[in-house]
Design a protein around this nucleic acid. Sequence first.
RNA 1: GGGCCCGUAGCUCAACGGUAGAGCGGGGGACUCUUAAUCCCUAGGUUCAGAGUUCGAAUCUCUGCGGGCUCACCA
Length: 441
Amino acid sequence: MSEIYPTGQMDPFIRTALDRAEIVRDLYRRVSKVERPEGWLPISIVCPACGRVGTTLARDWDGATVAFECLPNYVTWAAGCGTAGRITPFGGAAKLPWNLEWAAQWSLLGVTIEPCGKDLATAGGSRDRSDALAREVFDREPPRNLAYEFLNIGGRKMSTSKGRGAAAHEIVEVVPPEQLRLLFLRPRPNQAIEFDPDGTDAIPRIFDEFDRLAGAAAGAEVKGELPADADRIFRYALLDSAADVAAEAGRYRPAFSHLALLAQIPGTDVAARVAAEKGSALTDEERAILGLRLAAVRGWLDAYAPERARIEIQRDGLPAEAAALGEDQRAWLGAFARAAEAGPPSSGDGWQALIFEVASAAALPAGRAFGALYVAFLGRTNGPRAGWLLASLEQTFVVERLRAAAGWRHHPDGEPGGTGNSGGPGKPGGPDTHDTAEAAR
RNA sequence: GGGCCCGUAGCUCAACGGUAGAGCGGGGGACUCUUAAUCCCUAGGUUCAGAGUUCGAAUCUCUGCGGGCUCACCA
C-alpha cells in the first residue's frame, strides 16, 4: 500500500479525510469510544527530516497544507526529531491512519467483498470503524463482510518449553502446501480450526483426506461420505487451481502412514518400494510428491508422532506381549529359527519367502506367523513388512530372539506345555521347540 | 465487561426443520507372499441442560452451563 501514496492516487481520499476531519473524530468517538484531541487531523505526516511516521502530529488543515511537528515524546516506542513546519500532505508526504486507509482502498480498488478475521470484526473494532468511515466520509457502502475464524494449534502456545511448539514455520515443514490449503478449506470459514498435531494422527489424517478427495476427483470409489463441494475443495487445495485436476488427481500418492513405516525400516529403498506397489515407475511429478511426503513423514516422526506410530526393535529382551503368543505360533517360531539358522536369507525378499515357506510347512496361517514375528521383535501385533525388517537386523540377534519367543511360556500351573497339540501336520519344530522351551527357562 | 465461534458415537467432524451419519480408532472375521495393505461384519450416541415455536428440532428462539478465541493504539 505504501507504494501507492507516491503515485497520487490516494490524494483525493486524503483531501476528503482532511476536509471531514470533524466527522472522522466524531465517528471514532461514536463507534469505538476513542477520544481524539481537539483539532486532531486524520493524517500521518512522514517527517521530511527523519522519515518517521508515528512521531508526527498534524493540525491546521488550510486546504493546501497542514502544520506538523515531529515530537520527541509523542509515542513511547520512538522519539521524533523535533522538526516542525508546514507541508503539503500529498504524493507520499503523508499516510492515512489505518482505518481510513482501509476504507479508502475499498473505493480506490472497487472492492465489493472483503472477508476479515474476527479480531477485526469485533464490535466497535477496526471493521466497524472502517465501515462507518466508508459510509460517512467516502459516501460509499462498505464491501460485504465475512468474518472468519482462527486456526488454533491444539490450545498450545506458540513456543513451548520443549521447543516443539506450533510456530507457523514449523507446521509448514511437516504439512506441505497443498495439505495445508486443505486444512483451511475444509471447515466453514466461521468455524475455528482446531489443529493439534502433537502426539495425534491429525497430520496423517489430513493427508488421508487429501488422498481421498484426489481419489474422488479421479473418479475412483472412495470410502465414506464426501463433502458437498468435494471437487472444488480439491481443486483449490492444489497449488495451481488452474491445473488439470484430473491429471493431478490421478497421480500415485503413497499413504502417509504407510510411508511412515517404510521410512523407519533401516536400509529400505523407499522409492523402489513405492514404485513396486504402484506397479510401474514413478513419474517425475510422483517422485516430487514422494519426496515431499517423505520429508513430512520424517518431520512428523521427529516432532509430533504418537508413540504407537514409532516402531522400535525391542533390543533389551523379549517383549512382555510375547506372553500372549499361542502354542502354534511358538512352534512356528522355533521352526523358523532353525530354518533361519540353517539357511539365512540375504535379502528382504528372501526373508519374506522363508516366512511363508515355513508357515506353509507348519500349516500356520500367514497372519499368525507374521503376528508372532511382530510380537517377538516389536512387542506389537503388526508392523512393517516383516521380511525387510528381519533383513535389517543382525543374523544372530534374529535367531536368538526367535528362540526366546518360541520358548517363552506362561506356565501358570507348572505344566510344561508340551502337550503336543501344536505338532499337527507340521513336522518341523515339535520336539526341538520344546527342548528350546525348557532351556529358555 | 462487549463481540464471535463451538459443545453430535473414544477421536475428528457431517447432517442445518422431516426416521441421527462418515472417516479413523475399538471389537470380530477373511486372506499361502497384501501384512499398520485389502476386503467383510460390528459399535447402538438422553445430538451439553432446561424452556419455547412447530404436525415434527441436533437443526429456529430464549435462558443457563461448559470450552475457545477476540476487543486501546499502531499496521
